[in-house]
Simulated scan of single mutants.
Amino acid sequence: MSDHASDFVLQAISFDRLKGWEDDDPSSLFEGMRSCHRQITDVKPYRTGSLGLSSEDLLPLLAAAEDFKPSSPASARGFFERHCRPFLIRRKDGNPGFVTAFYEPEIEVSEKPDGLFRFPFYRRPDNLIDLDDGNRPDELDGSYVFGRLRDDGRISAYPDRREIDQGFLEGRGLEIAWAKSKIDVFFVHVQGAARLRYNDGRIGRITYAAKAGHPFSAIGKLLIDRGQIDRDEISMQSIRAWLGRNPERVDEVLWHNRSYIFFREAPVVDPQAGPIAAAKVPLIAGRSLAVDRMIHTFGFPFFIRADSLTHLDHGGPFRRLMLALDTGSAIVGPARGDIFTGSGDLAGERAGTVRNDADFVILIPKAAAGRFD
């Protein structure tokens, strides 16, 4: 484990101590694991997080999943019991883990702008470049992984949300489609993907391609700090309602979040499948987790127990095995996750109010687990 992971420890536990494990049905994870296996072996391995778990550590589990077809929830659980050992992620500051949720919105759009459809989704600009320790300017801290390559060869921070909203990218042909609402565009940026319903009936899909590089700043926290929404009432729905009541303040609030997301068009091969996110495989509704990729490596299973989160499981506590298949600017820390609830308005209603303490247990294939005893 590297120094970056020094604020938490992994505590070995047994499956019979995983409260809720005996009631879970992780059967739907196997198709996702097979997709991860193909991505790792046929395309490229996932980046190794600071915890030190690699795609190579994951491969025995994924290989075993290739031909395994669970006959029951118990047989699906038995597969993981045979191949993995569970470790509780325990933060050294004593605080619990925390989950939120995200979804794939469906937005009405037009191929061309007009008086109604005025707010674009942009492709990645060609002067947005990846940054690393070798080319990052001294004035940008290590959180900046994207920057602007200027005409004179210098590298600087890319314009932020306000500058882009005010027209920095106009006239460059980067628009994928135009939406009716600046607020809708903003929340697609937060979610990182969307289904686009064109006015001729076609369905398209966009997914994350890059970002301008500035840190994510939650507008919900801003509204709490300003006394506009009570902390206990904060949700995507309450934020949208506040913005709808205060149209003259929309720009001021949205521009507080300087982060700006660029998209790429993605094929809609299977309308029932989730969007392809950071792990380059389709997300599984209710079973995909966005994690901090600086710490964790995509493809690993996590058992999430959030007893106060009850509206996703018909009033029962949320206790599910999930796959780490995505990441996000706001997902920072060893026990911080974002649950993918699916696509469309109902999924959005489910996702918008998830803000719950949670236990995070990572399942590590047995050959690698010995390094963490």
Score class of each variant (00 low, 15 high):
H296S: 04
I284T: 13
L325I: 09
A278E: 07
D326N: 14
A273V: 00
Q272K: 13
A273D: 09
H296R: 07
I276V: 15
H311V: 11
P275C: 09
Y260S: 00
L309R: 09
E265A: 11
L323G: 13
N257A: 08
N257D: 05
V281A: 06
R293K: 15
A330L: 12
G315W: 05
L321K: 07
Y260H: 02
S259I: 04
D292V: 05
D326Q: 00
F303H: 01
N257K: 01
P317I: 04
A330S: 15
L325W: 08
D326H: 12
F302V: 10
L289Y: 04
S329H: 03
G337L: 03
G315I: 05
I261G: 08
A335F: 02
S308Q: 13
H311E: 13
G274S: 03
H296N: 09
A330R: 12
L312D: 03
R319Q: 14
A279M: 02
L283K: 08
A278K: 14
T297H: 08
V332Q: 15
I295A: 01
H256W: 13
A324V: 11
T327E: 02
G316I: 10
A279S: 15
T310S: 11
L309E: 11
T297E: 02
H314M: 14
L254D: 04
P334L: 03
M322L: 13
A324M: 05
G274W: 01
I304W: 02
F303M: 00
G286S: 04
K280R: 14
L325G: 14
A324Y: 10
M294G: 15
F303T: 06
H296V: 03
P282H: 02
L323D: 10
F303W: 05
M322E: 02
M294T: 15
F298H: 11
F298M: 08
L323W: 09
L289R: 10
T297Y: 10
D292C: 10
L321F: 07
P282I: 00
D307G: 12
M322G: 13
